Computed example of a mutant assay.
Amino acid sequence: MYTTFLFISGAEIAFILFIVLMVFGADKLPEMARGLGKGMRVLKDATNDIKHEITKSAEKNGIDTSIVTDVKKEIDKVKDNIDDFTGSVRRKL
């Protein structure tokens, strides 16, 4: 089975990485990866700050936010059940 990420197969990702390597060179690749990692970290921190502010505002206004954790728990249960089912199906194949 092929792994896809955003509708791109592994071979296409390898081709894109090859082109990036050819255009920027091997010496610039670690610097670019570091910059990309820092950018992703900043984005994650900003997202967490926004979530925190929304939660704080909801609690300040008396809005019950426990439903979110309840929904997450139910989703995790469903994921576990699906994983158990697909695991047994995969073993039989």
Rank of each mutant, 00 (worst) to 15 (best):
F24R: 09
G25T: 06
A26G: 12
A26D: 02
K28M: 06
K28I: 04
P30Q: 08
P30A: 13
P30C: 04
E31S: 08
M32L: 12
A33R: 14
A33I: 15
L36D: 03
G37Q: 03
K38A: 04
K38H: 12
G39Q: 04
G39Y: 04
M40Q: 12
R41T: 13
V42C: 05
L43G: 10
L43M: 12
K44R: 15
D45A: 10
A46K: 13
D49K: 15
K51R: 14
K51L: 14
K51S: 09
H52F: 15
I54P: 00
K56F: 10
E59L: 08
K60L: 07
K60M: 07
N61E: 06
N61F: 11
G62Q: 02
I63K: 00
D64Y: 03
D64I: 07
D64H: 01
T65N: 05
T65H: 03
S66Q: 01
V68W: 02
T69E: 00
T69G: 02
T69P: 01
T69M: 05
T69N: 04
T69V: 02
D70G: 02
D70N: 06
D70F: 03
V71R: 05
V71K: 06
K72L: 08
K72H: 12
K73H: 07
K73S: 12
E74H: 08
E74C: 07
I75V: 15
I75Y: 13
D76C: 05
D76V: 00
K77Y: 05
K77S: 11
V78F: 13
V78R: 05
D80P: 06
I82A: 09
D83R: 13
D83S: 15
T86N: 04
T86C: 08
G87I: 04
V89K: 15
V89T: 12
